[in-house]
């Protein structure tokens, strides 16, 4: 399976990259590990004539306890035992992504910006043409919810929810300079499966930063999928909590794999802060979260099942962090 020709660019600094991006406006994609982009290109999904490879931009690489460069390979995090111990929620998530072979090339930046997925989108040109193209590539209707001009493709990255609950921020570089925003705000709350990001097309993700207190949160990530490797999340639940004796001082829950963006549910968790994480409260919270997500039928497992699992996974992830505290 060959790729259609494109021009490959290899800038060496963030500034040069952003400048190039500006020049090639709308006619390029960034290439990180390529494990998401290249399969999509092989399927002729939204091809661009230029690729800007980020491999030679030194600033994007490496990781420390509080910063991960966008080009850091997933395997580098997975193999860093100290990092995984410091942030178990990230360790859980990274170790469950795809396969060791995908993690060897796939990057943290690519994972946060991974293309949303749908049974009607992640298909060959032949397949999509035979059904009629959809909104997300080459077409004008949605096969999942035909009544609307909205795309429900699912955000299927594992890392985002895990980093969100630690309060991660992303560093973005654009033509006007650099800025930081909370990771959750990277994903457009008013967008859909197509317009999924809140940053401008062509803006570069430079790094992920963890706040100084990230290590004081105890978190876990639990992933639902059919097979223990290869499969994208059909649901990913990240929780992080901070305890003061029996009382939960802080509580965050973020959910991915069910909607076009990963979402953190502070409005549901905040009322629990300051009290004890009793079984009743956990159960009630889990039930509310279950009602708050709206999966559609565009992945392998049925949406009602995935929604039901939200409750189970939230309860289990919370049990995990309560145990960690005890232990």
């Amino acid at each position: 399976m060959h790729l259609d020709p494109f021009e490959l660019h290899r800038p060496t600094s963030v500034e040069a990259t952003v400048r190039l991006a500006h020049e090639l406006h709308g006619r390029f994609d960034y290439l990180a590990g390529g494990t998401d982009l290249l399969p999509n290109y092989k399927m002729h999904l939204n091809l661009r004539p230029h690729l800007i490879a980020l491999h030679d931009v030194a600033e994007l690489s490496g990781h420390s306890p509080t910063r991960i460069g966008a080009m850091e390979r997933l395997a580098a995090i997975d193999e860093d035992a100290a990092y995984r111990t410091a942030y178990p929620v990230v360790g859980d998530a990274v170790g469950e992504i795809a396969t060791p072979l995908v993690r060897a090339s796939g990057t943290v930046g690519g994972n946060l910006l991974v293309e949303t997925r749908c049974f009607f989108f992640n298909q060959s040109y032949f397949w999509r043409e035979s059904l009629g193209f959809c909104l997300k590539a080459d077409g004008d209707k949605c096969h999942v919810v035909p009544q609307k001009e909205v795309c429900y493709a699912t955000f299927s990255g594992d890392l985002a929810p895990a980093l969100m609950v630690l309060g991660a921020e992303v560093e973005i570089a654009g033509p006007t300079g650099r800025r930081r925003l909370p990771l959750g705000d990277l994903y457009d709350a008013k967008g859909d499966g197509i317009r999924r990001l809140a940053i401008a097309p062509g803006e570069l993700l430079v790094a992920v930063h963890l706040p100084a207190d990230a290590g004081s949160w105890r978190g876990r990530y639990r992933k639902l999928r059919v097979r223990p490797s290869f499969d994208f999340p059909e649901l990913g639940v990240a929780v992080a909590a901070r305890f003061d004796g029996a009382r939960v001082q802080g509580l965050r829950i973020a959910i991915g794999g069910v909607e076009p963006r990963p979402r953190q549910f502070d409005e549901l968790t905040r009322p629990l802060e300051g009290g004890a994480l009793s079984d009743d409260r956990v159960r009630e919270l889990a039930a509310r979260l279950e009602r708050s997500v709206r999966p559609v039928h565009n992945t392998f497992l049925a949406p009602d099942y995935r929604r039901r699992m939200v409750g189970v996974y939230v309860r289990r992830a919370l049990a995990d962090v309560r145990e960690v505290r005890a232990g």
Partner: peptide, 20 residues
């Protein structure tokens, strides 16, 4: 498409999918 591992090679010593 990265879904079988038959194409694995070492790149700088690391097992890597040559098809991607």
């Amino acid at each position: 498409l990265g879904t079988c591992g038959c194409c694995t090679v070492l790149v700088d010593g690391r097992p890597t999918l040559s098809c991607l």
